[in-house]
Structures are given as structure tokens and as C-alpha cells.
Nucleic acid binder design. Sequence first.
DNA 1: GATGAATGAGCTTTCATTCAT
DNA 2: CATGAATGAAAGCTCATTCAT
Lengths: 219, 219, 219, 219
Amino acid sequence: MQTEVAPPPGESTEKARRTPQQQRSQLRVASILEAAGQLLEEVGAGALTTNAIARKAGTSIGSLYQFFPNKAAVLARLADSFRSEVTRTLGRVFNLETARRSIITFVNLFIDGLEEVQRRTPGFGYLFSSAKIEDSSADEAAHQLERQIMEPLDKVLAEAYPDVPEKQRKICLRMITETSKVLLANVRHLDPASQAMMSTEVKRMLGLYVQSYFDPQKR
Amino acid sequence: MQTEVAPPPGESTEKARRTPQQQRSQLRVASILEAAGQLLEEVGAGALTTNAIARKAGTSIGSLYQFFPNKAAVLARLADSFRSEVTRTLGRVFNLETARRSIITFVNLFIDGLEEVQRRTPGFGYLFSSAKIEDSSADEAAHQLERQIMEPLDKVLAEAYPDVPEKQRKICLRMITETSKVLLANVRHLDPASQAMMSTEVKRMLGLYVQSYFDPQKR
Amino acid sequence: MQTEVAPPPGESTEKARRTPQQQRSQLRVASILEAAGQLLEEVGAGALTTNAIARKAGTSIGSLYQFFPNKAAVLARLADSFRSEVTRTLGRVFNLETARRSIITFVNLFIDGLEEVQRRTPGFGYLFSSAKIEDSSADEAAHQLERQIMEPLDKVLAEAYPDVPEKQRKICLRMITETSKVLLANVRHLDPASQAMMSTEVKRMLGLYVQSYFDPQKR
Amino acid sequence: MQTEVAPPPGESTEKARRTPQQQRSQLRVASILEAAGQLLEEVGAGALTTNAIARKAGTSIGSLYQFFPNKAAVLARLADSFRSEVTRTLGRVFNLETARRSIITFVNLFIDGLEEVQRRTPGFGYLFSSAKIEDSSADEAAHQLERQIMEPLDKVLAEAYPDVPEKQRKICLRMITETSKVLLANVRHLDPASQAMMSTEVKRMLGLYVQSYFDPQKR
DNA sequence: GATGAATGAGCTTTCATTCAT
DNA sequence: CATGAATGAAAGCTCATTCAT
């Protein structure tokens, strides 16, 4: 997330004076987002209050509002960080070769990617799996996140399987989306063993399903 | 759970005087639950306030608290009423014959049943599909509902397919549950045409999946 | 302000049960408005907080919001009560006879009326004299009040002096308005003797001015 | 009040080093006051925040507090700068000749002077016309400003018309003050044409009034 | 029992002011 | 001195719950 270029290890005091401020800001923002993510995981969106976020982030409520105009913005930014995390993680998966070779493998990799992000990034699973939450700010963020994750997937599938009609592809995408969400929603509360099992099953179910639409041999 | 047992036509005035009161109570409770369900559908759990429930039910907030100790209790009772609705509706489906003949048909009927309840009973889809989301009071209720719905399904499957190991059955059950929830969660916001499509797809996906576990021919 | 008819001193328990609620409500509303008016007088609009109003009115903040949707509504209602007070007080003054006989007397009576309301009704002077305050809710209310007070005055003048061109009348009205506001703004912080003097002077100044426009002899 | 006294071109390096700092300080203070004045005009006292002032002045909030102990001090200093502006502008008006020749002309010139300052100095009209309104910090400053402007006027009148009793003079002064405030308060939101008209009317009203007290011919 | 006014903890957000860098 | 991040009291408002009538 650090978009700021590290200051050249040098002599310029001008720059040196300015950088720490931004670093601190970056850290604060990061810790606020982290706190928000953890709270989301722990207590859910309903109990996610700005005060709680600030407390958990080790800051004051005032500082939170110095960086974010309102609660919704915190969630939006969190969703955005999740999105870039997903994009980074799935970058290698989203290519035509993989998609064409085996749709099943492709879907499996997609899910593996989501699970990896989920493991690394507290709150991701919660937010992604609960688009259509009550809290309108979280809801907004969740929807955005879902769209942004699914769009590239759609694009790759469209390229890899140009003769599958769009309508079918969209349906399939919807099913993949929702089933992934199911997985992430469930996995969060399970012991590692059950997690693995659940993961396997979801892949199996989804694999059978998408194969029936996409696999050349079966069509 | 006092399901409307008509009081024996008594002769004592004591009883006669009490009966209409009890009836009124039942009516109040019923209207409160109905209001809660409708509001759940309309505004979601986040905006569901006790005052709104009372108002919609045509009672006072004080009366609501005469029958329910707190908000969570209202939702719990609502979940319970949903459960009995589901039980009633799925009663004919849950029999060995059907389950044994074709697991796919069985699952399809199960889903049809849920959809039927969803159509008839405002709030059911919302509550059932949002186990482990948000508002802690609704959450509790949703979980209870889920358990109560899945238990009989498990029992029937266990009887119908005694040689499928329990572990696999449990997993499969989980997948059926979650996938059903997905359906109900999505269906609520779609036009009838899309609803039908979604329903078909979910059945297809789930069918392929359970078949691979349960269908004697395929095993 | 009691618009509710007193319940007939009788036997109907039905009505008796309902009335006290409304009475209590009326009392609460009245005490809230009173508190708001007093605070306005004492601390000004800047320090007028909903919590302070509730505290001074001897209620809880929740009760205040049971009767008023927001702070602005309290101010608006207060302005409205002031307006009706002014209307009632100036009722006898606003007639053609008086206006025609002597414009000076007419204006004097108008000012006397405002001062009377000011004496009786805490907050009136403050609100009326400070249209264009910072606090937007108070501002809104103040403007409304000013308009509602000046409109009937305009109407009477128009009827009494039909050959004074509208433009001149409007200007004059503006001056009367503003000068009255000056009086009320100043009078609030003066001892009775100074009050009387200030009042006399304002009348003198305004008298000389309006006479030069309206008095038939001078035109 | 250190009004930009150019430091003597010194020879010691000590002094030379300090001087530019003082100049910078002066500039900072000036820009802060300017910003405050402009904001007062634009957003009013209610929305006038210290952070906004600093931002508009191109400084940091920290610097602002280096020069001013608190927000009230900024407004006090602003009022003071307005006062010196008014003093400078009205310097030529405040002389016995003018005052004696025609009280009406004198008052007109006084008002013209205020309007000139108002035109040149953003925030002046707002602050001057809102003595005893709202925000306590602005209030304090406004009062001080009013006193400081009215004192010299009183002095000139006392000298020019020694046989008008003090009591009457004070009253008259009060009326002039308040009526001027009315003008400045109203004028700020009007188009030029209406401004001119308002100005004329106020002068007319005030002229008629003071004439009745001060004009030798009429007494 | 029924009613709805009353309560107050708690939420989001703002802003004057401080303080480490 | 400059900077701006940090602070937290306080404001407006909501809603589950209680309690006098």
C-alpha cells in the first residue's frame, strides 16, 4: 500500500522533514484499516463502531476522522485494500492459458486465491461474503468489492471461452461468486481440518457445475 | 410452544373470562411476529426497531415487551414460527421413498419447499439466509432456525442412505444448507424470471453435487 | 397554547384515560419550548444545545426527540409560538382606523406590542432581533418569524395608504423591521429606565421617518 | 500595536538575523487576520474554524496558535485592525468644523466612512454589525470594536455641541451606532442598487432624527 | 394487561487546542 | 519557530427498554 517513494538515503533535509509525517500518516491509516478488518472479523459489521476502530487502532477518534471523512469511507478504503490484495494474489491465475487448459483447475485456483487472501487479511472474508449486510456503509463497500473481484474473472472467462454465450457465462459467474462467498463465510469459524474439507467440497461442487457449462469435452 | 390449541369449551365463568384474553394475547403475539417478518423483508435487520414492530403490529411498545423479554426474543420466536412453517411444508417431502428414489428429486423438492415458504412467509428468506450475519439478536435466531431445518433433513438422508458414511453426509448437508441460503438470499431481490433461472441453476449445481455422493448408480 | 379541549368533567372513562397523556405531552412540549426560550435569552443561540434544553426543561434528551424531530424543529416551533403571541397581541392594533388616523401612533403601537411580547415571552426578543444568526436552525426560524410578523403590517399599510407606491412602502417596512429589531436587541440588556428611554427614542426616530413618507399632511 | 515600523537598518548581525523573522511574523499575522476576515464574510462566525483560518492563510494551525493564544484572540486582533482602519478612514471626518456645520452631513459622512471600510475590508461589516450575537468569542471582539468606534464620535459631538446635554448625546449616539449596524448588516447581502437605496434611507432616517436633537435651527 | 411517555447509554461527527518532530 | 498529526470533550440524534398511568 505504500505508494510513497522511500526518501533517498541522502543529505536533503527538506525531504527528510516531510517524509516522517507521511510515514506516520500511512501507519495510522494502515493501523485503522487493520483494526477495522479485525473488528469486522471479530464482532461483525453491526458492532463495528468508529470509536471501537479508533480504540483498537490505538488512536483517538479525532485522528480517525482526520484521515477518513466518515465511517463509510473507512469501509470503502478497507474494501479497496482487499481488492488490491485479491488482484495481486490472483494476478498469476487470471490468464488465458490456465483458464483454457482446464476450467476446473481455473476455478480451483480462483478459490485458493480467495482463501489465501482470507488467511492473510482479517476482515476480507467477512466483507466479501456479506454483501447485503444491514449496515449501509458496509453494504456499499461489500458490493463494490464483489464487483471489482468478479469483473476480471468474467473478462478472462469471456476470452477463454468465446463460444459460451454471455448469458450462461453470467449465470455461471453468479454461482461462482455466491459459492465462493459461502465458503469464506463458513471457513472463518472452522478449525483448520474442517476448513480444508469445506474447501475441497466447494471446489468439487463448483467444479462439477462449471464443467457442465465450460468444459469442451462435456459440451 | 402452544400452537393454537383451542381451549376446551368450559363451563366455569373463570375460564370463560380468561379465554378471550388468551385469544387476544395469541393474536397480539401473532401480529407482532407478522410485523417483524414484514419489516425484516422491507428494511432488513439493521433498521428493525422494536418500536417499528409494535407500530406495524398495531400495538404499543409496552405490549410488545409484555410478551417478549427483549428484541432477541421476538426474533427467536419468529424463527421458531418459520421453523414450524418449514416443517409443515416439507412434511410430505421428508420421507424415505422420495429420498431413496432419487436424491436429485429429493433435493429439488427440498429447495422447492423452502422457496414456497419464502413466498408465503415474509421474512423467512431473510432470516434463514443470514445466519451469521450482523445483528447479534437476529444472528442467534437465524442459527437456531438453520439447525432446526437441517436436522430432519439429515435424519431422512441417514435412513435413506445408511451406507454413506456420516462424515460425508454431514458435509453434503452443509453444502445443501449453504447453497439453499444463497438461493434465498439472492432470489429476494430478483424479478420472477431471474428467480426461476436462479432456482434452476442452484438445483442443477446441487443436483450434480449430491448425485456424486448419494446416487447409487454413480457410486 | 392549549389547543386541546378540556375533557368534560364527567363519567366517561374512555376519554379520561386518553386525555392525561395529551396533557402531559402538551406540558412537556410547553416546558421544552419555555426552556429553549429562556436559554436563548440567557446564553444565545450559539450555546443552545438540545441537551441543555432538555436539562433545563427537566426532561431527558430522548423525550425532547419524541416531540421534535430535530433541533431546528424546536426552534421553528418556538418561533411559531412567538408569532402567535405577536399576532394575538397586535390583533387590536392592526386595523385600518388606527393606521389611517396617525401613522406615528400606529407605529408606536406596533412597537409597544413587540415590547409587550418581549416582556412576557423569554427568547422572543433574541430570536426576532437576530435573523441572520450563525446557527442555521435558529436562523431559519428567525427569518420565518420576521416574515410572519411583517406581512400583516404590510397589508394594513397597503390598505390604509393605497396611494403610497409599493416600492416606498416596502422600503419603509424594511426600516421599521430593522429598527424594531434594534430596539429589542438592545432593550434586553438594559435596566427598566434605560429601556423606557430607548423605546421612546426608537419611536421618535421611526416616527419622524415614516411620517415623512406616510403622513398626508406632510406629503 | 506595532503598525509596521520598519526596523532601523542596523549593522549588527544579531539584529539583522532577527529582523526578517519579525517581518515574517508580521506577515503571518496579517495573512491570518485577512483570512479570518474573509472567512467571516464568506461563512459567518458559526462556521469559522481555526483550522480553516490557518488553511486559508496558507499556514499551519500550529503557527496560528504561536501568534494567538486562542480563537477569541484572533477575532480580538481582527477587531482591532478594523478599528484602526475605521480610525484612519474617519480621521478627516471627525473634526469640529464638519460636525458643527451640519449634523446631517456629519452623520452622512460617518456612515459613508463605515461603508467604505466595509467595502475595503472583508469581515468588518459582519463583525461590527453583530455585536451581541452568537459566538462568544466573536461577540467580545465585536463589542470592543463598537466601543472603540463610537468613542471618538462621541468626543467630537461633545465638543461640537457642548450645550446638548450628555444624556441626550449618549442616546443619540446609541441610535447612530445601532442604525449603522443595521445598514451594514443588511447591505452585505444586497445587490449594488439595493445597497444604495438602503444607504440613502438609513441616512434619511438618521438625519431626521439627529437633526431634531442637534440642529441649532430646529432646537 | 395495555399504553406510550420517559430514559439514557451509545453512536457518528466536529473542532479548539496541544505537542512531538 | 513551523508543522500537522493527535486529542478528546461535546454536539446532535437513535433506540432498546422501563414504568407510571
